[in-house]
Design a protein around this nucleic acid. Structure first.
Lengths: 344, 344
DNA sequence: CTGAAAGCGCTTACAG
DNA sequence: CTGAAAGCGCTTACAG
């Protein structure tokens, strides 16, 4: 660990003041051309690189954007992150990531992160803040943007998918195909993180069915953990009953994959014996030909980062909400009730 | 943007010097108990949070670990990242991420990152550094660890999977099942990033076949981009030839999924008409029952982070190499040549 | 146990 | 166009 070369070393070697060296470093145009060249040369020779800590302290900013997200490896989170990254790639900001997989971690971050002068902006992905932290977050010195984190009491800028509309889309598609006995497999509505997607998707779904005069059958509604295996088991139970549904809407593609596995176990052919539609459009869905409702994941990350950059550069709080519409992606796991795919 | 409250505000309000306030902040035990309590109380009241920039400058470190990775959303990268994150979660270090999807970005990062005093340590994931940067990286002030980045000329610490052994495992499995006509679908050996996994896996595979007295048939070797669709097309061509192989080893699970799709297109039943084995064991492989060679992705990230932390805390360069062994994961896409699965 | 003061490496208003 | 100097907010050896 040899001693760092500082701007002072550069200045001395180039025979100028540190002020001038700093000006060259920052590309200020007031510097004499010959001087500038000399300084740059010395920087090159000395392999000088500025200390970001010193610069940050002096400038009062960190040149850092922080993302708090959960379950980094879930395809949804990874894709959103990529959207954020893409949007920041050409900026001068670095991306700091906090991955949260427990309530304790979440609370810790929400409590310490926006307060510390550690970052110039915060993007919260898929983590609704606990009620008691909302006020603090709103009064934070640091601009904050929520992505896919439904929080009704806040006026902070946020990017949301319309889960209710997406659930409705799924129901419409199945209704159009002639289905009347339609099951639902999703996440438990109550969960420690306060995720609302399953609940909202179900709401849109249920509403649409009701409007079509279809009453909910409790045997056709199953809820559990957000995993393929949990969904698999739930679906096996549902599909083993005498009056099984002819179609199932799963609150996520991951769960839909579990439903497909259950159908296979039971010797039910998809889509002839059972139609299945998921939600998200993750990569695996394309692999297996799963019909699904696509969320704009990458887009949501990008939009969130852009909102944040606007807040940072304009220094004006611009509370707003961006809603990204879901779309139906038809593949091979849904079909008309009479058999054989049919255009709805 | 109200003015930040600093340690000086705390000191004044508590009636102590900033030195004492700082000692309380850092949990130094030399402080009088009553004083400590008073200071802590004031910090609470003022909602004081220390400036990391100032602290970093004063301490000469950044409390930051930087990860340079590529293709963040590929399941391999995401899982490795999670391993790193898990290992860092309880440390005081923050995780900064650079996602690289072009050669230009890669070069830029390799050139500027380890030089700047921006980070306390660097983990390079899946990105072999260009030859001309190796020397600089080796003499960097910042500890560096490579994960899954094969670089023969460096002595820097690194974590690697044994791709040659993995390729051999795949070949052995297929040989055990009685196959003799075995195809390969992988990435082009030459690629701008210098990825070597496909090449190494092929080497181990080919070696094992040779030892069994099987000569390579050029019609059974296909290489292209790292994508499901590219692999799909290559496999269709290979499987349409009169003398098609009875088994295919794909250099990645993603490509294996393409091969499975090709088989389906051609009406070939897997595993009766064709055995398929992949590499990686990504989540989707479990979904579709793909037999594959598992890499320890999460483990590799964790091991890399641990090596780095050791270097940072011990301040001693401890060049070493950790090799993670691949394992065969048998599922439903490989079977004995005679038909029907058989224990090898 | 506590305080005054120097120092970390930069930036920038103020003079010249 | 350039320099001397103050300041960003913290830490820590040095005295007491």
């Amino acid at each position: 660990m040899k001693k760092q070369t500082t701007i002072r070393d550069v200045a001395r070697q180039a025979g100028v003041s540190v002020a001038t060296a700093s000006r060259v470093l920052n590309g200020r145009d007031v510097v004499n051309d010959a001087t500038r060249r000399r300084v740059l040369e010395v920087m090159e020779d000395l392999r000088y690189t500025p200390s970001s800590a010193a610069r940050n302290l002096s400038l009062g900013r960190t040149l850092t954007i922080t993302v708090v997200t959960s379950f980094l490896t879930r395809p949804q989170a990874a894709e959103r992150l990529r959207g954020i990254d893409a949007s920041l790639a050409d900026s001068q900001f670095d991306l700091v990531i906090y991955n949260v997989e427990s309530i304790e971690k979440r609370n810790q971050y929400f409590r310490t992160l926006p307060l510390r002068q550690r970052t110039d902006g915060l993007i919260v992905v898929s983590l609704p803040p606990p009620e008691e932290d909302v006020a603090r977050l709103e009064h934070s010195d640091v601009p904050i943007v929520f992505v896919d984190a439904r929080q009704n009491t806040t006026t902070l800028p946020r990017v949301l998918g319309d889960d209710v509309a997406g659930g409705a889309l799924a129901a419409e598609h199945l209704l159009d195909l002639g289905h009347r006995q339609i099951g639902f497999v999703g996440d438990a509505f109550e969960n420690p993180f306060g995720f609302t997607s399953s609940k909202d998707r179900f709401a849109g779904f249920q509403q649409t069915l009701s409007r079509a005069g279809i009453k909910p059958i409790s045997d056709h509604i199953a809820m559990g953990g957000h995993g393929r295996y949990e969904a698999h088991e739930l679906a096996v139970v549902m599909l083993s009953r005498p009056s099984r549904p002819t179609a199932i809407f799963a609150a996520s593609d991951t769960q839909a994959l579990g439903v497909l596995a259950a159908a296979q176990d039971l010797g039910l052919h998809v889509p002839d014996d059972l139609s299945v539609i998921g939600y998200d459009d993750i990569e695996a869905s394309d692999f297996v030909g799963l019909t699904t409702i696509r969320q704009q994941l990458f887009e949501s990350g990008r939009a969130g980062a852009q909102l944040l950059m606007a807040e940072i550069t304009e220094r004006a709080p611009t509370p707003q909400m961006v809603v990204l519409e879901p779309h139906l992606v038809r593949r091979r796991t849904t079909a008309s009730l009479e058999g054989g795919p049919r255009e709805p």
